[in-house]
């Protein structure tokens, strides 16, 4: 596990200017606002956060699909913003991307064969028969067999789960080293979700991929990754291994999140959940200091609302951005 980091995100900021009537700025949405983490090859990590917390924006910045306002994404020691167009092409071939909506992620007018062939054609891989061979292998890997049946099909002829498997096959066909899966199962039925996540996990293990699994669902993250990064209002507030995070959540937001997640248990009906008041802040005008402070049960006036908490590391490998851990103490 002491490999060099494959991906490093350093103080990343992605901002979107909101335009009003085509003139001037109505403000800036700080969709990702100072995010740093490091991941190694073959690691599986989840970014967990609520809707609008900036997860997809972070994913796209890693994929080089949007331009950071500040900070860097560093792949194998090379900052993305220093890559020349040809190197960028190489970088893209090192990436796989699985999106949320499997149907939307597939061009509706292309057959499965063509969909899987496109990355190969674009990256000028092999001869035609070699490409066909790779396409078949990819379909077999995602268990869309018999392959002949699926090759000529169009996306609308497939179920949601099958579509997502085609997306996964496409994202791994270039044999990438980093796979970003942005809510890959949130549009699918519960019964299919696990199947797709298992498939992702298998691919990740088989090809020693660095998997970044983006989700709002802590319960699935728990079963399919080793490391969890919790995102709240454009920042990562806590990162730790699954065991550390679930057994000993440190950040008040993480605690609230874990407390709010139900299990199928009839006892639930008899009790009320303890939920922090209010709603996630607007990213146009985020609160000063800690962004969770208006909702936080442990809020310390004069500290939390004044200065942004940096990452503290009260336990080895367990980072948390909360003033409670300034002196390294760990509450139990």
């Amino acid at each position: 596990m002491q490999d060099e980091p494959l991906l490093e995100v350093r103080d990343l900021h992605v901002w979107f200017g909101l335009r009003r009537w085509g003139f001037g700025h109505a403000g800036v949405v700080r969709a990702v606002d100072g995010v740093s983490f490091t991941l190694r090859p073959g690691e599986a990590a989840a970014v967990v956060g609520e809707s609008g917390s900036g997860k997809s924006t972070l994913a796209k910045a890693i994929l080089g699909l949007n331009r950071p306002a500040k900070g860097q994404v560093i792949f194998e020691g090379k900052p993305l913003d220093s890559l020349k167009p040809r190197e960028m092409r190489w970088y893209r071939s090192q990436l796989g991307y699985v999106q949320q909506d499997p149907y939307g992620a597939l061009p509706p007018f292309m057959s499965v064969r063509r969909i899987l062939g496109e990355p190969l054609v674009i990256n000028k891989v092999g001869s035609k028969p070699e490409r066909e061979q790779r396409i078949r292998e990819a379909l077999e890997e995602v268990k869309l067999t018999p392959v002949e049946d699926f090759l000529p099909k169009f996306p609308h002829m497939l179920s949601g789960g099958q579509q997502q498997r085609v997306v996964i096959a496409r994202s791994t066909i270039m044999q990438p080293r980093l796979l970003v899966a942005d809510e890959p199962v949130s549009m699918l039925d519960a019964s299919v979700r696990v199947e797709i996540l298992e498939l992702l996990q298998k691919q990740q293990e088989a090809h020693n991929l660095l998997l970044i699994y983006i989700t709002h669902d802590l319960s699935t993250a728990r079963h399919f990754v080793q490391r969890i990064l919790v995102m709240y209002a454009a920042k990562i507030v806590e990162q730790a291994s699954v065991e550390q995070l679930l057994d000993n959540p440190l950040h008040p937001y993480t605690r609230a999140l874990i407390a709010a997640i139900p299990e199928p248990d009839p006892e639930n009906a008899a009790t009320f959940k303890d939920v922090p008041p209010g709603e996630p802040p607007s990213l146009l005008h985020p609160p000063t200091g800690c962004r969770f402070h208006p909702r936080c049960p442990a809020f310390m006036k004069g500290i939390c609302d004044v200065k942004e908490p940096p990452d503290f590391e009260p336990q080895v490998g367990h980072l948390v951005a909360c003033w409670l851990y300034e002196r390294g103490q760990v509450e139990s």
Binding site: G161, S191, E195, D217, S219, R222, E263
Partner: peptide
Amino acid sequence: KLMASVPRLRGGEKPEFIPGQ
């Protein structure tokens, strides 16, 4: 099967999927 497909946050085994459609 449906119950077994629910991923649980606490305890419990790994969730299973329901094969077929």
